[in-house]
């Protein structure tokens, strides 16, 4: 009992330390640069308290739930030797976690407004909604495909830099042909796809696969799935902008 209490205290302190830089930056700018009082002090203390408890619970949950399940599924698929199921799982994981991602929904809605203002689609709510939905499906498809390609890469042991650099070249080439309105959105969509719950799962999946296959090094081959998931949306979103 005493030990678990100590552990709890330790993880709370660690979370406080993680949060201190933000508190320092906001405090410094509010008091020194903008020279204004801190509003609602009690509310801020309460909020900080929530953040610290939340972060501690999240890290604990990672080690108990997300990491073990990601790795054990990777081992199970590797033992079962069923490549097609593994790839179906990889696609579902990428597509399913991205289509409902709140950050993506908000970016897609903003992108629809940009497209309507730019005259790419007609300026009605209907046209905007269908454009935003189309964009979301495009990004989710691209993330699904990205995880599939990333898993195949781990299985085959292809060097990651060739695929990523090839992808970057694709992004650069497409930038010259895509409508200028879509470029900023496309570049940003790469960053918004990977949510806080998806990242640990996908990382555990990659590392688990790489360590259960003979001849793969988990450090060299296990990482990189998230990189694919951030790269392909850029290409797909620019393609979406060129086709529409």
């Amino acid at each position: 009992m005493k030990k678990s209490l100590e552990l709890l205290l330790k993880s709370l302190l660690e979370s406080l330390r993680d949060l201190l830089p933000i508190i320092a930056v906001i405090g410094f700018f509010q008091i020194v640069v903008l020279q204004q009082p801190i509003p609602d002090f009690g509310k801020i203390i309460l909020g900080v308290f929530f953040v610290i408890i939340g972060l501690s619970l999240f890290v604990r949950g990672l080690e108990m739930g997300l990491f073990p399940i990601g790795e054990s599924m990777a081992y199970a698929f590797a033992r079962k030797g069923s490549l097609s199921w593994l790839l179906v799982f990889a696609f579902c994981l990428g597509f399913g976690t991205t289509i409902a991602e709140p950050a993506l929904i908000s970016v897609a809605n903003e992108a629809a407004i940009v497209a309507a203002n730019g005259g790419m689609i007609s300026n009605t709510a209907d046209a905007q909604a269908s454009y935003a939905l189309g964009l979301r499906i495009t990004v989710a498809l691209s993330v699904g495909i990205a995880i599939v390609v990333g898993v195949i890469r781990i299985l085959k042991g292809w060097p990651i830099q060739r695929l990523i650099i090839g992808g970057y070249l694709g992004v650069v080439v497409m930038t010259f042909f895509a409508p200028p309105e879509i470029i900023g959105i496309a570049y940003d969509s790469g960053g918004v796809t990977t949510s806080t719950i998806t990242v640990p799962l996908v990382a555990a999946l990659g590392v688990g696969l790489a360590s259960s296959i003979r001849g793969r090094n988990p450090m060299v081959d296990g990482f990189g799935l998230i990189a694919f998931a951030s790269l392909t949306p850029m290409i797909f979103v620019m393609a979406y902008g060129m086709i529409l």
Binding site: G47, V48, V51, I53, L57, F58
Partner: peptide, 17 residues
């Protein structure tokens, strides 16, 4: 834990920071 932790984390951020 992840669910509750993430929710508390987000509420705290929305409230305070």
């Amino acid at each position: 834990y992840v669910l509750i932790g993430l929710s508390l984390f987000l509420v705290g951020l929305e409230e305070a920071l």
